[in-house]
Design a protein around this nucleic acid. Structure first.
Lengths: 157, 157
DNA sequence: CAGTTTGTTCATTTTGTATTGAACGGAAGC
DNA sequence: GCTTCCGTTCAATACAAAATGAACAAACTG
């Protein structure tokens, strides 16, 4: 069974997404919306990707929460529709940076409670957390660079 | 059952690792090696973390492959031992950059096969891949900055 | 206001992956 | 050369997360 490049792309997006630890269907929806370029309803996703209504709803909202898709209400239609946001890069980076900062904070918080005779271990752990924090800072810096390069209005968080 | 901050740290490292889509035990080993600061054998990991010999072997080699731990052979001992590398940041970043580049390459390869009447979709997909590639470039740039800041010899890849 | 249509939720099933534990192979010791 | 000690591999198991589909709630229609 040979596949068209279009189908192949959708499938690959799903695999990449799951390789990054997320639900495969979210990646497939992302690929589908990218290809279509215009708003698509949950029913259309179900039809195109052969998935259940529940999965379409859950994963589309996941993309929405991550800032990769936007929900729109076409006038005259009772159905919600989702649209791939034009330049998802900054949103993706902000999500990663947020997670890194939370992890850094938690590591710092725990290591602060180490007993006094573990000073050397504590220092290594603090260094480790510091790297996480700097990573987050660096991603923010990069995000700013991307947005200014394009002259985007940063109204979307 | 209350936990010491030390145990809490190991456990938290495991949870973070699995939240990022990896094996929990790999994170626990990483935390353990960070705390100890000196080479530790597989048997010691099994004892400290209450895990099987197979898991210790598999996950320690995973850390080694990612450049976060180094295998050493203490003279006079028949056992391998693993040591947390002092500054794992660059290795982690290189791993991420490599994955991003592979994903960008695969997306580009697939989109190049799109039929001619899908030009607009192709453009959107190419833009998407381009973001992945730029991300990888940016991480490399950052890696270089970190290494030069510290004056490290970059003998380790 | 009864009847549709649509999105969400959630218990259940399915699927994928981590973990184990036993078997294997190689190297060092005696 | 036989035995012992390690590390690795792999089939079986356990576990966690994803996907489903039916039930529910809300909003619109006529």
């Amino acid at each position: 069974m040979s596949e068209s490049p279009i189908e192949d792309f959708i499938q690959t997006m799903g695999l990449m997404w799951s390789a990054d630890g997320g639900p495969r269907i979210a990646g497939q929806i992302m690929g589908y919306l990218l290809l279509e370029g215009e708003p698509r309803t949950l029913a259309q996703m179900c039809d195109a990707l052969q998935i259940s209504k529940g999965s379409a709803s859950t994963n589309a909202r996941l993309l929405e929460a991550k800032g990769l898709a936007r929900r729109v209400h076409p006038v005259g239609s009772r159905q919600d529709a989702f649209l791939a946001v034009p330049h998802p890069g900054p949103s993706m980076l902000k999500t990663v940076a947020l997670r890194l900062r939370r992890q850094a904070d938690e590591i710092s918080r725990i290591s602060a409670q180490f007993p006094e005779d573990e000073g050397a271990a504590q220092q290594r752990v603090v260094d480790f957390a510091e790297f996480y924090r700097k990573s987050a800072d660096f991603m923010d810096e990069w995000t700013a660079r991307i947005e200014s390069d394009r002259g985007d209005d940063p109204k979307e968080n």
